[in-house]
Amino acid sequence: MEEMTLQTLSAKIDTLVGYCEQLQADNVALRALQEEWHRERAQLMQKNDLARNKIEAMIGRLKALEQK
């Protein structure tokens, strides 16, 4: 009886270890995705700023032409 309990406990521990390993792998993958999204967001913000500056410059030139 005691041997069966130890085997059951050992099997449950092995299952938990497997879950922990899977969670660690998932966590690493999610952190990598998060880092990638942060980089992509920074790039998009930079492109947005560049576009905004170009549009503001065009508006400024159009206003200057309008005043002539």
Rank of each mutant, 00 (worst) to 15 (best):
residue 1 M to G: 10
residue 1 M to Q: 12
residue 1 M to K: 05
residue 1 M to C: 11
residue 2 E to K: 08
residue 2 E to C: 10
residue 4 M to H: 10
residue 4 M to L: 15
residue 5 T to W: 10
residue 5 T to P: 04
residue 5 T to L: 12
residue 6 L to T: 01
residue 7 Q to H: 01
residue 7 Q to M: 14
residue 8 T to I: 09
residue 9 L to H: 02
residue 10 S to M: 00
residue 11 A to K: 04
residue 11 A to E: 13
residue 12 K to Y: 06
residue 12 K to H: 04
residue 13 I to F: 07
residue 14 D to H: 00
residue 15 T to R: 06
residue 15 T to C: 04
residue 15 T to K: 06
residue 17 V to I: 15
residue 17 V to W: 05
residue 18 G to Y: 07
residue 18 G to A: 00
residue 18 G to F: 03
residue 19 Y to G: 01
residue 20 C to E: 11
residue 20 C to K: 13
residue 21 E to F: 07
residue 21 E to V: 09
residue 21 E to Y: 02
residue 21 E to H: 06
residue 21 E to D: 15
residue 22 Q to H: 11
residue 22 Q to N: 06
residue 22 Q to T: 12
residue 23 L to W: 07
residue 24 Q to D: 11
residue 24 Q to I: 12
residue 24 Q to K: 13
residue 25 A to W: 12
residue 26 D to K: 04
residue 26 D to A: 08
residue 27 N to K: 14
residue 27 N to R: 14
residue 27 N to T: 12
residue 27 N to V: 04
residue 28 V to G: 03
residue 30 L to W: 08
residue 30 L to F: 07
residue 31 R to A: 05
residue 31 R to K: 15
residue 31 R to P: 02
residue 31 R to M: 07
residue 31 R to F: 02
residue 32 A to H: 00
residue 32 A to M: 06
residue 33 L to G: 05
residue 33 L to P: 08
residue 33 L to A: 03
residue 33 L to K: 15
residue 33 L to N: 14
residue 34 Q to H: 14
residue 34 Q to P: 07
residue 34 Q to V: 02
residue 34 Q to T: 14
residue 35 E to W: 02
residue 36 E to V: 01
residue 36 E to S: 11
residue 36 E to R: 08
residue 37 W to F: 10
residue 38 H to Q: 15
residue 38 H to L: 14
residue 38 H to Y: 03
residue 39 R to S: 08
residue 40 E to A: 08
residue 40 E to G: 00
residue 42 A to N: 10
residue 42 A to I: 01
residue 43 Q to W: 07
residue 44 L to R: 08
residue 45 M to N: 13
residue 45 M to E: 14
residue 46 Q to A: 11
residue 46 Q to R: 01
residue 47 K to V: 03
residue 47 K to M: 02
residue 47 K to Y: 12
residue 47 K to G: 03
residue 48 N to T: 15
residue 48 N to R: 08
residue 49 D to L: 08
residue 50 L to N: 06
residue 50 L to P: 00
residue 51 A to I: 10
residue 52 R to H: 04
residue 52 R to D: 06
residue 53 N to G: 09
residue 54 K to T: 07
residue 55 I to Q: 01
residue 56 E to S: 04
residue 56 E to N: 13
residue 57 A to I: 01
residue 58 M to D: 13
residue 58 M to S: 10
residue 59 I to A: 12
residue 59 I to P: 00
residue 59 I to F: 03
residue 60 G to V: 00
residue 60 G to Q: 00
residue 60 G to F: 06
residue 60 G to M: 04
residue 61 R to I: 09
residue 61 R to A: 08
residue 62 L to C: 06
residue 63 K to G: 00
residue 63 K to I: 01
residue 63 K to D: 05
residue 64 A to F: 07
residue 65 L to W: 13
residue 66 E to Q: 15
residue 68 K to A: 11
residue 68 K to R: 15
residue 68 K to H: 07
